[in-house]
Design a protein around this nucleic acid. Structure first.
Length: 465
RNA sequence: UCCUCCUUAGCUCAGUUGGUUAGAGCACCUGACUGUUAAUCAGGGGGUCCUAGGUUCAAGUCCUAGAGGGGGAGCCA
C-alpha cells in the first residue's frame, strides 16, 4: 500500500533515486537561513533522521515562510537532489510548500534545544515529536513486533486473557476495583457492607494483575501460549521501575520443566535484543550517544554470553562470603533485596543471572514444590541495571500438593475451582514466566525511568493525557 | 508509604556570610549575512524567586507546614 503523492522521509533519505520530484509531509524541527535561502529540517516520524528542505526565499510568500517554525506541519514538493552542503547526502529543493498547521513559537513548548526528561513528562502529549521519544516509540513497536514474531515462529498461540477479572487470588499485588455502582450511595447488604451482588457483574471485579492463571488454562490445551497485554497494579510504588499500568508478556508452556523454562527465557530475551540491533540501528545509536554511552556495548554483550544459572541457596552463599556489608543482612530464607540482586548481577557475575529454587515461603502458591520440602522451582531473571526483569516458575501440577499449599496460605479455594480443575483433569507438567515489557524497554533503550519508555505513564497521582 | 535532595525567565541553571533596580546560556522578537547544520553576529522584550505562614531593620537566601518533582528503599514485572 502506498499513499499517492507522499514519500516518507525515511524512503526519501535512502532511495537513491535522485533528481525526481517528490512530496514529503511532516513536522518542522528547525528552520535557519537568511533572506535569500532557508533550510528546514523536516521529520515525519518514519526515522530519527530529518530531511533537509532548501527553499529560495524570494520564491515563496513572505507570510508562508514566517510560519514555518519549529513544530509546524507542512507538505513540501520539490526535487530530491544531492546536497550541496555537508551533513546530509540528499535534500529537497522546494518548489511548493503547503502549511497544514502553524505552531506559534511564542507558546509552543518544544524548542530545538534539548529538554529535560522531567519537563517532557509534563508535556507527554507533545513529547512523541522529540528525537528521544520518536526513537523510544519506534523501538517499542519493534520490540512488540519481535515478541509476537518470536512466539509465532516457535509455535506459540497468542491468548487473550481477560482485563477484568473476578479473581482476587493471584496475590500479585493490590488491585484496581472495577464497578458501575454509585459511589456516593452504594447498595448495602443487611450487615452494612457494599452489596457487590448489585454490581454490573454481580460480584466484585478488578483489573487484572496477571494473565498467568488463565494462561495456564490455555497452555493445558494448546501446549504453548503467550499473553501480551496491559496489567494493572494499584500499589503505591514511587520508583523509576514501577508503573500502575504496564504491559506484560506471559508465555505458558505445557510439558516444560524449569530448565526448559530457563532455555526459553534466555533464547527469547536474546532474540528481542538481536532483533532491535538489526532493525533499529539509527534509534539505538542516537540513544547510545545521547543517554548511555555503554548501551550498544551492553546489548551486544547480552547476546554473546550465556546467562548464569544458579540457585537461591548458592546466591545466599555468594552474598554471605562476599565480605560486603549490606544494609539488609542475608540469611537463608530471606528474600533477596535490590542491593543483593545488584551485587550478584553487576559485581559478582557481571552478566544476566537466572536464579532458581527459592524458599517456598517467599514465593507464590502455584510454584512447583521441590522434593526437599523447602524450596520451589521459581525462576527470576536478573539483568544488569534493571534488576528483576522476568519472574516465573515451573507450576505445581499435583492437585494434592497444590491444594495443601492453598490451605496453608489461607487462599480462598472456591474462587480457584476452575484453576484446580486443570490439575483434576489431565494435569501435566508446565511452566511459564512473566516479562515486564517496560522493564525490557529500559534495558533496550538505556533510559533510566520507566515513565519514559511508555507513551502515557500511569503512576500514583498521575493519570494525565 | 519511608528516607533524602530539589523547586529562581518559555527551557537549563547561577545567585557568596541575609543587604540597593534578581543574572547567564538557549528559546522568542527586530536587524545583519547567498548553503546553513542545536547556523553565526548585534540589539530588544520577558520574573507571583512553588504556595501559606513565621524570624528579621531587611528574605530568592533562615525557620515551619503544604504542594510538585528527582534519587534511594519497600512492594514487584
Amino acid at each position: 500500500m502506498k499513499i499517492k503523492s507522499r514519500t516518507k522521509v525515511k524512503e526519501a533519505l535512502t532511495t537513491g533515486k535522485l533528481d525526481r520530484e517528490i512530496t514529503v509531509k511532516g513536522w518542522v524541527r528547525t528552520r535557519r537561513g537568511n533572506k535569500n535561502i532557508a533550510f528546514i529540517a523536516l521529520n515525519d516520524g518514519s526515522t530519527i533522521n530529518n530531511i533537509q528542505i532548501v527553499a529560495d526565499v524570494p520564491d515563496f510568500p513572505e507570510d508562508l515562510l514566517r510560519q514555518v517554525t519549529t513544530g509546524a506541519s507542512i507538505a513540501v514538493t520539490g526535487v530530491l537532489a544531492p546536497s550541496q552542503g555537508k551533513g546530509q547526502n540528499v535534500e529537497i529543493r522546494a518548489q511548493s510548500i503547503e502549511l497544514y498547521g502553524a505552531a506559534d513559537p511564542l507558546i509552543y513548548p518544544l524548542q530545538k534545544k534539548g529538554h529535560s526528561l522531567e519537563f517532557l513528562r509534563e508535556i507527554a502529549h507533545l513529547r512523541p515529536r522529540t528525537n528521544t521519544f520518536g526513537a523510544i516509540l519506534r523501538l517499542r513497536h519493534a520490540m512488540s513486533y519481535a515478541i509476537h514474531k518470536y512466539f509465532n515462529d516457535n509455535g506459540f498461540y497468542y491468548l487473550h486473557t481477560p482485563i477484568i477479572t473476578g479473581s482476587d487470588a493471584e496475590g500479585a499485588g493490590e488491585m484496581f476495583r472495577v464497578t458501575t455502582l454509585d459511589m456516593t450511595n452504594p447498595p448495602k447488604t443487611p450487615d452494612g457492607k457494599i452489596d457487590f451482588g448489585k454490581d454490573f457483574f454481580g460480584r466484585e471485579t478488578n483489573l487484572t494483575v496477571s494473565g498467568q492463571l488463565e494462561g495456564e488454562l490455555g497452555a493445558l490445551a494448546l501446549s504453548e501460549v503467550y499473553t501480551f497485554g496491559p496489567t494493572f497494579r494499584a500499589e503505591n510504588s514511587n520508583t523509576p521501575r514501577h508503573l500502575a499500568e504496564f504491559w506484560m508478556i506471559e508465555p505458558e508452556m505445557a510439558f516444560y520443566d524449569i530448565t526448559d523454562n530457563m532455555d526459553l527465557a534466555e533464547d527469547f530475551l536474546k532474540y528481542i535484543v538481536v532483533y532491535v540491533l538489526e532493525h533499529c540501528e539509527d534509534d539505538l545509536e542516537f540513544l547510545n550517544n545521547m543517554y548511555d554511552k555503554e548501551l550498544l556495548q551492553r546489548l551486544n554483550q547480552v547476546i554473546s554470553t550465556d546467562f548464569v544459572r544458579t540457585t537461591y541457596t548458592e546466591a545466599i552463599d555468594i552474598l554471605n562470603s562476599s565480605g560486603v556489608k549490606f544494609e539488609f543482612p542475608t540469611h537463608w530464607g530471606s528474600d533477596l533485596q535490590s542491593e543483593h540482586e545488584r551485587y550478584i548481577v553487576e559485581k559478582h557475575y557481571k552478566k544476566p543471572v537466572m536464579i532458581t529454587d527459592y524458599p517456598k515461603k517467599i514465593k507464590a502458591f502455584y510454584m512447583k514444590q521441590n522434593d526437599d520440602g523447602k524450596t520451589v522451582r521459581a525462576l527470576d531473571v536478573l539483568f544488569p541495571r534493571i534488576g528483576e526483569i522476568v519472574g516465573g516458575s515451573q507450576r505445581e501440577e499435583d492437585l494434592q500438593k497444590l491444594e495443601n499449599r492453598i490451605s496453608e496460605l489461607n487462599i480462598p479455594r472456591e474462587e480457584l475451582w476452575w484453576y484446580l480443575d486443570t490439575r483434576r483433569f489431565g494435569t501435566a507438567p508446565h511452566a511459564g514466566f512473566g516479562l515486564g515489557f517496560e522493564r525490557m524497554m529500559l534495558f533496550i533503550t538505556g533510559m533510566s525511568n520507566i515513565r519514559d519508555v511508555i507513551p502515557f505513564p500511569r503512576s500514583p497521582n498521575n493519570a494525565a493525557f
